[in-house]
Design a protein around this nucleic acid. Structure first.
Lengths: 242, 242
DNA sequence: GCAGTTCATATAGCGTTGCTATAGGTGCTA
DNA sequence: TAGCACCTATAGCAACGCTATATGAACTGC
């Protein structure tokens, strides 16, 4: 959605809202400020965007599309998980660069109002994770992984926004990012090279655990618990792969 | 901060605000609603709390202290990492039970306005992680781990709140929680390919199976069986030594 | 060329919001 | 009884999101 072909008033409103959202550090932005800066009167705003939130949505989705576009461009590094890392960092940077926009997008999300942007972000992340899954580098389903990573990504970004700029420590982001990616990656289920089916990885892992439990006795479960546990383990490890 | 000894008006304001915040599903709560329900007129509110946000802060911190108290009580399970899990789950439940309060606390956090509650939550989490660190179960500094886990916890909770109640899937919480705890726990040794130190192969295999089970819902166990199975699995995978 | 329709903008103002200037009541201490 | 804190109320301000209504411009069909 380029700004070029739009009627002047609508475009000026978008620009004014974006500028005010970007510059007013934390303070809420009123429709009167926006219309005044855009040199337009109130009904024009509502004619074009229906709502104050409609205007903000437009600004957000414009900014988000820009961010997504820049994201897709330099993404194909061959290593999907590396791309995920970069995607995470870009997300954080986007939030820190435009905290107001970001808070509108991810801070006030309520059930009835705004799953749209979140769904977009999830889809983008999932798309990248699909490549990782295709390369056998994922130990969980891409959709679940995407939701999980995005949730952590949002949480970290909100925390960083909440901190004073002075003592913002990006180690929080780095650490959480690597934790999430590592947890989702398949390098601890190292058998995924030959069998990429999710179910078979369960079986393989169950067999491995079974073997490990036989050799070294764990004291974390009582004997009765262990007995039942082993039985279940057996049921899992002998299940047919579909 | 008990409610008992307070003058009636102040207490009635707190109760009214809490009730309106809890019951008004998503809609903003106005001071007039509050003062009307509390049978009090406007200046009284500002006399006692200075601000609308001051009132909300009071409500929030009351609720938060209650939540913290309930948290500390049943916490000492001996296994710090298990306690962290429970703490995570309680955090999510707190957010889902009182979404309005939660959004006030963690959704709108801006640099100048509200690091207080966040700091409290961090401190609580850190306190628990210190025990884990003392038991040699942590591979990173408790403070960093607490910040990281809390950030992910907040992100997950916000995501769940944003979803319609119907299709809320708590797997998102479970998966992210275990990912974070696992990443922070000291069994990270094999992350660097150094498998001999620290964890036994039982733990490694248990973790792998856990991850695999998260991705593909096995139909070999009933849901109640699976729940208990996963619980045991986690006990094994968070055990400190063999 | 001109009526009809549609789109875009403006004037003025409604109802509600958070908040306050001012003042009156209440109970305590002296 | 006087004085003094504390607590509460009447009334109202400025700002908010939003809209009923109206005017101008641009295009369309005849």
């Amino acid at each position: 959605m380029s700004f070029e072909g739009q009627p002047p008033a609508k475009m000026r409103l978008l620009r004014a809202a974006a500028e005010l959202l970007a510059n007013s550090a934390g303070a809420p932005v009123s429709t009167r400020q926006i219309t005044q800066l855009a040199e337009v009167s109130a009904p024009t705003l509502y004619h074009h965007f229906g709502d104050k939130e409609g205007l903000f949505d437009a600004v957000v989705s414009a900014g988000f599309e820009e961010y997504v576009a820049g994201e897709r461009d330099f993404a194909p590094s061959g290593q999907p998980l590396v791309d995920i890392r970069r995607m995470w960092d870009n997300h954080v940077q986007f939030g820190l660069n435009q905290p107001e926009l970001y808070l509108v997008m991810f801070g006030n999300i309520r059930p009835e109002s705004r799953p749209a942007i979140v769904a977009d972000a999830e889809a983008l992340m999932e798309e990248m994770l699909n490549k990782a899954a295709a390369a056998g580098q994922l130990s969980v389903q891409p959709r679940e992984a995407a939701r999980s990573i995005l949730a952590a990504n949002v949480g970290v970004t909100l925390m960083l926004i909440a901190e004073a700029v002075v003592d913002r420590n990006l180690d929080l982001s780095t650490m959480t990012r690597d934790a999430m990616i590592y947890a989702v990656a398949s390098d601890q289920a190292e058998q995924n090279g030959n069998e990429s089916s999710g179910k078979s990885s369960v079986v393989v892992a169950a067999i491995a655990l079974n073997a490990a439990l036989q050799s070294s006795h764990s004291d974390q479960l009582s004997s009765s618990e262990l007995k039942l546990f082993l039985e279940w383990l057996h049921r899992i490890s002998t299940s047919s792969t579909t």
